[in-house]
């Protein structure tokens, strides 16, 4: 069966005055129809660049997609001329962004910014466009649509603006919605509302969603599959239950430990992964995570680990999975992380 979206060996770099920043190197994954895929990782791990490459939103220069293929409905997007790409954007695939406060144009009304999409892609008349816009605003839970359309973004709260963004993205009934950290900039209660809204909409319109987040907890309740990225590469990917129950990569272990859990009575403190994110201007010869990894071995600093199949659909790239590597048990995993988080904690205090 053909996938809706297939990304194959994608590499995107930014060429700055300081040198080449390899934001994404050799990333491959797919999304099926009606499926929700989560991409997780810290800021700067390449999640956003990956999806912007799909949408053709990489500013060029300084950015450039150096290699790879992106197939959407069997069409290679990287070979499409910009005009055809623009015709796809906002129609067949849409995107919503992290910061709803800055993602809407401050000098145009909400109505102007929504209706222009329908003019552009559907060739709607004024009346039709207006009706559709009001309908979608209603769908995302903004009731007084007629009034809202005349207002400017600064008169709206963050949650309201994100609802407007979602409504705008769905106006032309796209097959794929990319949500780039849609809840990060919002209050916790609003976050839950927005996620609930997305989940609802996904069911209603058979939408495929790529959800980018740095929060594994959000993924757990929303997606069927997860990709974990670090330093521009995929370090682990699999079904949600694979990742949560039997993660194989030390970075995923670290991420899992940093989720606050209500059922955990022993420990209420959130544990960050010590160390700083990698410097992609000077890529490491080996595994990017080696510098922060409590299990790092000599080889980790020398060679990039290869992706290994754990079971069908679950794979990870770590030298610990090499047959010759020492085997770790759960207790050891916990104690090693404890050690680093303690020393890290003391230093930062």
């Amino acid at each position: 069966m053909q996938h809706l979206l297939e990304v194959d060996n994608l590499s995107t770099s930014f060429f700055t005055y300081a040198g080449e920043i390899r934001a994404v190197s050799g990333v491959s994954f797919y999304v099926d129809e009606g499926e929700a895929l989560g991409i997780v990782g810290e800021s700067g791990c390449g999640k956003s660049v990956t999806v912007k490459s799909i949408m053709g939103l990489i500013p060029e220069p300084p950015g450039k997609i150096i290699k790879g293929q992106i197939n959407f409905r069997g069409q290679n997007l990287l070979a499409l001329p910009e005009k055809k790409m623009a015709a796809l954007r906002g129609k067949a695939m849409s995107m919503i962004f992290q910061d709803p406060m800055t993602s809407l144009n401050p000098v145009l009304t909400i109505g102007q910014q929504m209706i222009e999409v329908l003019y552009r892609h559907e060739g709607f008349g004024k009346r039709e466009a207006f009706a559709r816009t009001a309908e979608f605003l209603d769908m995302v839970g903004i009731s007084d649509a007629r009034h809202c359309l005349k207002q400017y973004p600064h008169e709206f709260s963050g949650g309201m603006r994100q609802r407007v963004m979602i409504a705008t993205a769905l106006l032309c009934q796209p097959q794929l919605l990319i949500a780039d950290e849609p809840t990060t900039a919002l209050d916790v209660t609003i976050q839950a509302q927005i996620l609930e809204l997305l989940r609802d909409l996904k069911k209603k319109v058979n939408l495929s969603i790529i959800l980018i987040t740095h929060d594994l907890g959000v993924v757990a309740g929303f997606c069927s599959r997860v990709i974990v990225m670090y330093g521009g590469r995929i370090v682990e990917s699999g079904l949600v239950q694979d990742i949560f129950k039997s993660a194989q990569h030390p970075y995923t272990w670290g991420l899992l430990r940093s989720i606050p859990r209500l059922d955990n009575t022993q420990r209420t403190r959130l544990i960050p992964i010590p160390g700083t994110p990698p410097d992609l201007l000077h890529p490491a010869p080996g595994c990017e995570f080696a510098a922060r990894c409590p299990f790092a071995m000599n080889i980790c600093n020398e060679q990039v680990p290869v992706m290994r199949q754990i079971n069908s659909g679950h794979q990870a790239a770590c030298w610990l999975l090499h047959p010759q590597a020492p085997k770790l048990n759960i207790a050891e995993r916990r104690s090693r992380y404890e050690g680093t988080s303690h020393s890290g904690g003391r230093k930062s205090c």
Binding site: G90, S94, S103, V117, R120, M165
Partner: peptide
């Protein structure tokens, strides 16, 4: 700015983005 990125993501024509946004 982010809102220009949004306008691009909406698939608007380049001239619309420049003049209007």
């Amino acid at each position: 700015q982010d809102y220009i990125r949004t306008a691009k993501a909406k698939g608007l024509a380049k001239s619309t983005i420049i003049i209007r946004h």
